[in-house]
Amino acid sequence: MNLEPGLAHYLVVSAALFALGLLGLITRRNAVQALMGVELMLNSANINLVAFNRFGTGGIDGQVFGTFVIVVAAAEVAVALALVLTLYRARRTPNLDAATSLRG
């Protein structure tokens, strides 16, 4: 096994990170923890973008793309936490299952 990190190594780590993020998203009842799962998924995609940039395409496009992803993540988390806080204020719980006044 080649221990020297190449493109495939980064992609496999990123795949594992994506899978862990997905696991968090689908199994966690707490909205904040589900959000943490989403952040892991976004980070894994960013690793891909930077790794492709480094080993394959060159230029700077992958890194610029990654910067935009981070900006979007920040905006999304701000809105998400505002919603979680309001949910908590109304129901005293951040759990998604407890939010059941809508018929699913």
């Binding site: 492709f52 480094r54 394959g56 060159g58 230029g59 700077i60």
Partner: peptide, 12 residues
């Protein structure tokens, strides 16, 4: 990730 022949370039 491991089987695909990704785009070959100069790299950075």
């Amino acid at each position: 990730a491991t089987r695909t022949p990704w785009a070959q370039g100069p790299g950075r």
